[in-house]
Design a binder for these strands. Structure first.
Length: 425
DNA sequence: GGCTTACCTAGTTG
DNA sequence: ACAACTAGGTAAG
């Protein structure tokens, strides 16, 4: 394939508190975005179309390859508008779920939940993506007992082997996500095992088989929230909200559980990020820890996360945060991720001096602000005194961290290592 | 219904 | 170097 040309950057007015791609694309919702650290650019393929993004405090910048003629997603061709509306804008609005006002939602959640208010100021602009349901389903089957780095690797391999080549830019080929039919071959399971999918190989193969051969066409997308349908489908009103979620959400969740490798947590991830059900609250190990630590769970309820406890936690958060509980959940979940732990650790006590080498202007800030401002890492020289870190992180000396509140301390230990490593170079 | 255990593997930890 | 452990769970008993 020839190197593909890129269009000029175009821009959309959009504040960082309405969308922060640097956080949203790294918090474990989508596993396919490529991050180019040089200029903080993000690249991916959506609906068969290559897309590149970057952002500053006022605008979201986007560019793509010239409009394709043949291999275009069907929904794009049915552009019923006479206005020459940029198809990329439609894709961006849909994928990033840009219709609801995120700042309004944040103030709503802050009003009803002091803990949210406390954490949220460091984690603004986190949106729930409206991803393709099939891609979300496969991605989250991969996520079981796994870490974000490896999930991303696996999804990437899946696209490279089974997906269609869409563009070649800077020597890298970009692929679309393969349809279920591409994964129903008799050797798929063993191929996936060779690619390092482990026991998930069987789940993916069997689920692809089920959807391709045992379900009506459009079955999965048909489980979508009518208010937030698949790309290119007209929105319709949805049913009324209930404590356990709307009827359509309950039904989607139940149907997803019939698929191999799909338990309650994966079903909720797909419902939330792939089917547009905002009340879906995936309760994973992090959320369970958060519920026990910050929301008084764990005393009366059982020690392990069984089905009853799962529903109790999810219902509690739905009651607390309302119809878009899953969006709020994602903010707290992100705050708890190790990748982002430095935001909280740093702002607590570490005073980090950041020197922007380009302008040679010295500013004092914490790591969190530096990240929030999205200073290119290469342009930022972070200087931290080791005593400050030790003082701030208070690395525990006890060997058995697991017994107590292990998660926090473990995160701090990791963070200490990470910063020390950075200092050594 | 609630609780255990096995399941793949890349990367990290001690 | 190298064994043990960890990471967005699920299925089966």
């Amino acid at each position: 394939m020839h190197p593909t040309s890129l269009t000029e950057w175009r821009k959309l007015p959009l504040g960082l508190s309405e969308l922060c791609i640097n956080t949203t694309l790294r918090c474990g919702q989508s596993f396919r975005w490529q991050h180019l650290p040089d200029n903080e650019e993000w690249r991916c393929v959506l609906y068969g179309r290559f897309l590149s993004l970057k952002q500053d405090s006022e605008y979201l910048y986007y560019r793509s390859t010239p409009p394709p003629h043949l291999h275009i997603h069907a929904a794009l061709q049915h552009s019923s508008h006479n206005d020459v509306e940029d198809p990329l804008v439609r894709i961006i609005n849909h994928y990033f779920n840009l219709t609801p006002s995120l700042t309004d939602l944040y103030s709503q959640w802050s009003l009803s939940d002091p803990n949210f208010k406390k954490k949220a100021s460091q984690f603004t602009g986190i949106r729930i993506l409206r991803q393709d349901a099939w891609e979300a389903l496969v991605s989250f089957i991969c996520s079981s007992n796994n870490n974000i780095a490896r999930i991303s690797q696996m999804v990437e391999k899946l696209c490279a082997i089974y997906g269609q080549s869409v563009a070649e830019i800077d020597g890298r080929t970009y692929f679309d996500f393969p349809k279920p039919e591409r994964l129903t071959g008799p050797n798929t399971e063993s191929e996936l095992r060779k690619l390092g999918f482990g026991y998930r190989a069987k789940y993916i193969y069997e689920t692809a088989q089920t959807i391709a051969e045992m379900r009506e066409k459009g079955w999965l997308d048909g489980l979508s929230n009518p208010e937030c349908p698949a790309f290119g489908v007209e929105p319709k009103p949805s049913s009324e909200m209930k404590p356990e979620g709307r009827d359509g959400y309950r039904e989607a969740h139940e149907k997803l559980l019939e698929l191999k490798g799909v338990g309650p947590k994966v079903a909720d991830c797909v419902s939330l990020m792939g089917l547009g059900w905002g009340e879906s609250v995936p309760v994973d190990t992090h959320v369970w820890q958060i519920a026990q630590r910050d929301y008084r769970f764990g005393k009366s309820s059982s020690k392990t996360l069984n089905k009853t406890t799962y529903d109790a936690v999810a219902n509690h958060f739905r009651k607390l945060w309302g119809k878009e509980a899953g969006w709020a959940h994602s903010v707290l979940f992100t705050a708890d991720l190790r990748t982002f732990a430095d935001k909280l650790a740093a702002t607590k006590k570490v005073d980090v001096k950041v020197e922007e080498t380009k302008s040679e202007v010295m500013i004092e800030t914490d790591v969190s602000t530096a990240i929030a401002l999205k200073m290119p890492k290469e342009d930022v020289d972070v200087k931290v005194k080791v005593e400050d870190i030790d003082e701030a992180v208070k690395t525990p000396k006890g060997k058995k961290r697991k017994e107590s509140d292990g998660i926090i301390h473990a995160a701090h230990t990791t963070e200490t290592r990470r910063i020390s490593k950075r200092l050594r170079r």
